[in-house]
Nucleic acid binder design. Sequence first.
DNA 1: CTAGGGTTAG
Length: 968
Amino acid sequence: MLREFAPPELYIHPVDHYSNSASSAPFVLHRSNQGCQSNVSSQIVCTSSLSWIPPQSTNLTEKTLLPTSFREAYGQYKYLIEEEVSDLPSKFQNIVEQYLLCKDLETHAEAYCIVCGIGLDLYNYIGSQLITILSEYGNVLEATRLFYRLHDPDAFAWGAFISGYTSNGQENLAINLYYQMIQTNVEPNSHIFRVVLKACANALALLDGWEIHSHIIFSDRDSNIFVCSALLDMYMKCHRLEDARGVFEDMPEHDSVTWSTLLAGYASQDLGHEVLDLFCQMKKGGISPTPVTFISVLKACSSISSLEEGQITHSSLIEHGYEDNIYLGNSLIDMYSKCGLFEHAQIVFNRLHVRDVGSWNAMIGSCALHGRLDEGIYLFEKMQDEGVKPMIITYVNVLKAIADGAALDVGRTVHSSAIMDGIESDVFVGSMLVHVYVHCGSLEEAYAIFNNIPSPNAVTWGTIICGYAEHGLGTEALLLSKKMQENGVEIDQGLLVAVLKASESSSCLTQGQSFHALAVEWDMQHDELVGNALISMYATCGNLDDAINLFNKRPHRSTMAWNALISGLASQSPDYVHGREALTAFWQMIQVVQPNEITYMSILKVCSNLCALNQGNMIHAHLIEGGLRWELKVGNALIAMYLKCGNLEYASCVANTLPSWDIVTFNTVIEGFGRSGLVKQALHLFDEMLRNNIEPNDSTFISILSACSHDGLVEKGHEFFELMKLHGIGPKIDHYDLMVDLIGRAGYLNEAEDFLETMPLTTDFVGWMAMLTHCNRLVNVDIGRRSFSVLVKMDPSNASSYVLMSNLYADAGMLEDAEKLDNIRKSTNGAIKKPGKAFIEIGNKVHEFSVGCRGQDLSGPVYAKLQELRSQLKQNGYKPHINMAQGRSSKEEESMLWEHCEKIAIAFGLINTAEGSTLRVSKNLRVCSDCHDATKAISKVEKREIFIVDTYRVHHFVGGQCSCQDCY
DNA sequence: CTAGGGTTAG
């Protein structure tokens, strides 16, 4: 296939051409570090008007004798013409050659003009060299013009031309030129083959590579060591190990370069062991390694994380006297870093006599890998102080460190310096910036960056979609996923993981299934990460069968796969639908693989949700048994679990053994104390936290505000609400909702309503629900009605607002209104009450109960116990909370109350545990007022301590009283 | 005419 190429230009007389080229400066430079092209053109202009001084010497055969200026040489040339010396161009050629060998811009420019001026550029040899030089300066256009002025380009000229296109990133045009050359009957020589194979290697043009390989065999040059090296390299770059190996085996001899080419190929495909094997063979064959060989060997050591091999290689390269090679220094930094020895990387870096940008990149990359944010930033600044300009990869590395350290402020600083360098919209830098802002929780800034990247790739899309999904903005994540598909982004594994997370985060099974189909279409469903994301998505979206099916089909079940299953099952909060399955899976998992901190965090969360203290205890014991020094995160999860189960002693035991407390520890304990009604202690901890110089974050204020709310501390709540602003934290909707709850709980309904209506954010369902709850409690029909109408507009399908309002009417004696509302709920909008569920752990088993326990295999004794309690409690002053609105008899109503899942769970617990032992029940909704009163009475009659943990707080019942003091 | 292989990577 030949493509139309630029037609040859007409031959222009040298003198005419001279004036032409003077106006169109040929050295339009793209090289970043060479700046002053204005001098060049001015010089070109004055060149033409100079009068030439006759030379001092006419001995032009002396190659070493280089005139001080090219103009002087031109004078010699004129002199030679006058003297009518024969073989003139070849004499002048020597001078041209000398000049072209100098690598400075001004000489080149000057020589170029003069050479063109006298027509020497039309000689193949000089023309070829000029083409090479022009290409080096990135001026492909002028190189092309020059090439087409040549009368009869030879292979050398074609070679220069083809190689110029290759080095300027136009490999496909370069390959076409090769075919064009064959058509003009120029026989390709080994130089041409090398040059065109290089183009194929860069462009990964395997088909052309194969074709050219056949030309090479045909032309009998397949034993040329240079040609074979190029072939080898081409096959390696195209990932054709077999073909490359074939070329290598068939070669008549191997030298250090062919070996290095082979090793580099294996190293680039992360085949570390193969590289090390081949390296041994190479040495056995008596070939001495070069610095380039060592680069591949070091890369191999890091790819197999073998510090031992790395150190052997290090001493070996010192023996060979390559210690000061900068490439090797940089590779050593990388090797030590990837083999886990950050300090060694630092030593190598500090010992480098000369540092290039690669040295800084390797060291900053090492900081990023080892979480050394401060050092990374320091180096990033220092390199610039030393005049080394950061590259894209430098930014990528330093931003990675910043993202891992969630250092928002530093992130912004580096961001602005990326803007100064004009690369903030580069797709690599931009993707990393998106990642930084996502990881720091600033999604607005992340999205702004994302929007600014002209051609986002799969990674960019994946980062922003994951960002939204992981911050609970599933709907937004899904919208972006669809936009991504419309934009026709090429799908990769990471992107599939992202869109599956988006589906998971928005609990959208149908979307998840369609992305599953997409994964199958791209044949990526077997990829480890995609597979795990699928399992997690199905488990989270409640499709247990598919989750387990996919999990069982996995040939190899890694810790990650188990985590996907367990965290998926665990994440069904607040319904805890599959919490019990998650526990089963966990105990199976530890038989076969080692859990990690993610496993423990998910499973401890399950124990918290189910109030499964025994299970939690066993997992704690398992952790201690494993002898692992667990991460703070796991410690925090343990504390949270014990607090949620109402076991403050164990919680404080764990808290006291932690070597240090981080912000999560403080937040967890403050939240837990508040939940258990230990508000004074929670407030005290907040002060303690400040004294420890730990800056509170927005979660801290969630915890502290809800603690205030639990104790009705309105004043304190307002104080904290103002304090958070002083700490630079803008209150979010959750904080406003908590304030509404706090003010309402204290009985100031009007103030609470004012607060809602004047807040600067858009109100949400939670806030108005808090409002209606307190109206209900204080029987305020007026405000209650207004709240209800807002709630119905927001979410007509949510039954909880109807139920609350109906109860409010009933309590206010407005039975007709109550009944009307119930009928509307049942008939028109189909709003369904969320089914209540209660869990109780007996021994090591967690039992689940729902209202009326339909479908539960309950033995007679539980009902017998319920009947017994019913009559016992009545004698002890318990009055059933009968809602008169339902149109049923009070007897029926009372029976229904005794079908509540909390009561069944308690009855089940009472008959299945020893007398006097503590019961712990968890509830997926708030405990109802009737069950609350009944449990108070049960705790007295049965002489039991009972905990009911609901979504709001820990209720601790002892001797007829509850720790919440009926404030719930 | 001359020659090849390469560090840092979302």
